[in-house]
Simulated scan of single mutants.
Amino acid sequence: MSTELRVITGADWEAFRAVRLRALADSPDSFGATLEESASQESSLWRERAGGPGPVVLAFADDSTVGMGGLYTPDETGDVFVWGMWVEPAWRGRGLASDILRLLLDQPAAQARPALLHVTQGNDTARRLYERHGFVGTGETLPLRPGSTVLIDALRRV
């Protein structure tokens, strides 16, 4: 079965919402948001997030989404931020996360500026993926979300 990677628009918000909620349910310690808070968000917010600022990539297989990743490209900083990387468990180990990350990093904003991301401590598979794409640890460690005992490491690609 093959996959199609696509940079989505706000019109694709329902597919984005569906895969994001599955990701939050599957890997709650990999995201700063929680399933509960995300599930209650209005459709207008989902539409806005799907449309930018910065590309959101979804991976499609048949009629379902099987992976995602985003690139936040704020005007006010010199960096871009990779966020929301996730692949459906049945699709892991096939290079899909690498394909999503490569597409995000090939975007013009990512080509022109350093990229940052966070990875949960202990998620060695994800960390190795990011290191293969040129990310290195910055030495900065943060809680996953306020009050969390789960820690994340900041990585940078220059």
Rank of each mutant, 00 (worst) to 15 (best):
G69F: 08
S98R: 15
I100D: 07
G52N: 03
R20D: 02
P114I: 10
V136T: 14
D153Q: 14
D99Y: 00
S2D: 14
E76V: 11
L21G: 09
G137R: 14
G134I: 06
Y72N: 14
V66T: 04
M85C: 03
L142P: 01
R92Q: 15
R127K: 14
S38D: 13
L104Y: 02
R22E: 14
E14H: 13
S40C: 08
A154C: 13
L71M: 08
R47S: 11
R113N: 03
A18T: 09
R20E: 06
P146R: 12
F31Q: 05
R102E: 15
L117P: 02
L144N: 04
G134V: 06
V158L: 11
T138R: 08
G69D: 05
P55H: 12
A97L: 10
V66N: 00
T73W: 10
L21I: 10
L58G: 04
S44G: 11
A109K: 05
V136K: 08
V56T: 15
V56C: 12
S44N: 08
T3Y: 07
L129G: 02
T149I: 09
I8W: 04
D62S: 12
V57P: 01
F135A: 01
T77Q: 07
L45N: 13
G147V: 03
I152C: 01
W86Q: 01
E42V: 10
G122C: 08
A126M: 04
A39D: 10
R92G: 01
Q107F: 02
E42W: 02
P146A: 11
A33V: 11
E42C: 08
L101T: 06
L151Y: 00
L105S: 00
L96W: 06
Q121A: 06
Q41T: 04
L35Y: 15
T141G: 00
T138E: 09
A50W: 07
G84Q: 13
R128H: 14
L103R: 12
I152V: 15
T9E: 13
R22N: 07
V57Q: 01
R20Q: 06
T120H: 09
P114Q: 11
R6A: 06
D79E: 15
L116N: 11
S98M: 00
L5T: 02
A59M: 03
R17W: 01
A110P: 07
R6T: 12
S40H: 13
E14G: 00
P89W: 04
R156N: 09
P143I: 10
L142T: 13
D99M: 13
R128W: 08
P55I: 12
G134C: 09
T77W: 07
P114C: 11
S2A: 13
Q107S: 14
P89A: 04
S148K: 06
S2H: 10
D26P: 03
V56A: 05
L58I: 13
G54V: 10
Q107K: 09
E36R: 14
N123M: 04
R20I: 09
M1K: 13
L5F: 02
G52V: 02
F60A: 03
R22G: 05
E36C: 04
S148M: 01
R49P: 06
N123R: 07
S2K: 10
T73E: 15
V136M: 05
L155H: 06
A90L: 11
R127Y: 05
A90R: 14
G78C: 02
D75Q: 08
Q41F: 06
D75M: 07
G51L: 02
M68S: 01
V19F: 11
T125D: 12
V80K: 01
R156A: 14
I8S: 04
D29L: 13
